[in-house]
Design a protein around this nucleic acid. Structure first.
Lengths: 240, 240
DNA sequence: ACCACCGAAACATCCGAGGTCTGTTGCAGG
DNA sequence: CCTGCAACAGACCTCGGATGTTTCGGTGGT
């Protein structure tokens, strides 16, 4: 195994073992390199790699630090990964989102604070009557993010955030090509909001399913896939 | 922005734009470095970073290649990320798994081939009567992996795989500390298998929920968390 | 047709020299 | 005493070249 990979594992172990806690500063390059028994160049490669996945944070002129390691930080590195997937796997991502989003929405109906729900409602009103596609998608992302956050599970929230990336592009197409999409989206958002405000997890969950499934259905047609539609069906999920 | 980060983005763009397709070979270090306008050292840092997340694959003596970019490859980079999370966030991961696993199991009941179901059943028989904890956990992982694979969604499968990592450690503890865990696990696995074999998605889904919830419940107690148990409840998910 | 050997190509690693940014220190001025 | 500016030191950034290792593919002998 290359020394650089060894170094990555060593640093990883130092963090997992607790020798390096979140926020801690690493020894300086030269020192750490000597300690791990490799050159500064190789060490830098290791650090850079750990930097990409948000485990380390280097600040020029200052030093290298361990990040907070919070889920939202580490999981948003996944956004980078997800970006590499082509359109042919978007449906698979969307299928996963179709599983998680309703669950998150249901949880949000149970756990969101009244203030957060109010803010969620405010988001609905912020949109103009004839918004640009970009504004619509941005508002949509914000809406779903707030709900995911309201689930009370940061991992779930970050995961949904990552999965929304590729979906966002799809939604842009949709806004561009499908006439009634804007009105439909707004209606469904309102329905989801009202279900959450009424503290009705089942209803909220169902509306979320309908919402995501709508995008999924449209995308499936748009891609001209001949797949068996049941492939992404979620059995026994809906009580109604 | 550091030149290395620019290089990472450049390479990323080359791949996303299709200039570099999966399996393609990159220009040699010196050539690519000149083309991107930086030194070999800096380029190597970029390559190493993209290597960590399985986007590139360097083979000494041969060259640097773009990986297949298949979901299972990119998502298993997430395993690396998940490893960094401490025990206090394991419950959040488990909660997500509790959402995904039942859905995947339900899908598997619909889509697994008869041969795959037979192999799944064979897994149940492979375990000795008094297996070591390691053997039990390994068998458990394999069992759930096969089900996740049977869902027909590679993204879902890889995601569950990643989430199982931290859970695995927990299961080891469980096996070590909880007496009836082995028998209970075997019973539930058998029940899940039978439900899938009978093509009963709802039943399979419910058993999966019971299975994961059992681990979750035990872990919650073991960690002595005083959290509101409803925090991770999935509302309206069970038909029964 | 098969196998061992050899050389070219490409990555792995190391090194040392400059450059740039950041946080700190110390001094002068208000 | 407090404030502001300038110089300094520490740490990371970037570079380019030299040397070691591994792999691939061609060559020649059997």
């Amino acid at each position: 195994m290359p020394v650089t990979d060894v170094a990555i594992d060593k640093i990883k172990d130092m963090i997992i073992s607790g020798e390096l806690a979140p926020g801690d500063r690493l020894p300086k390059e030269a020192e750490l390199a000597q300690r791990l028994g490799l050159s500064r160049s190789s060490l830098r490669e290791a650090v850079k790699a750990l930097c990409l996945i948000r485990v380390l944070d280097v600040r020029q002129g200052d030093g290298t630090y361990v990040t907070s390691l919070e889920p939202h930080l580490l999981l948003d590195a996944m956004t980078f990964v997800v970006d590499f997937h082509r359109d042919d796997t978007v449906l698979d991502f969307l299928a996963v989102r179709r599983i998680l989003e309703p669950a998150a929405t249901g949880l949000a109906a149970l756990h969101m604070s009244d203030e957060d729900i109010a803010e969620l409602g405010a988001l609905l009103g912020e949109l103009e009557d004839s918004p640009t596609v970009e504004a619509l998608v941005a508002n949509d992302l914000q809406f779903h993010r707030k709900i995911a956050d309201g689930s009370g599970n940061p991992v779930l929230c970050s995961l949904l955030d990552s999965l929304s990336g590729p979906t966002a592009r799809a939604r842009i197409w949709r806004g561009l090509t499908q006439e009634g999409a804007v009105a439909k989206t707004r209606e469904q958002h309102t329905a989801i909001y009202e279900a959450i405000a009424a503290r009705e997890p089942e209803l909220a969950r169902s509306w979320a399913t309908v919402h995501v499934a709508g995008v999924e259905q449209w995308l499936r047609n748009a891609l001209g896939t001949a797949d068996d539609p049941t492939t992404t069906d979620e059995p026994a999920a809906e009580a109604s």
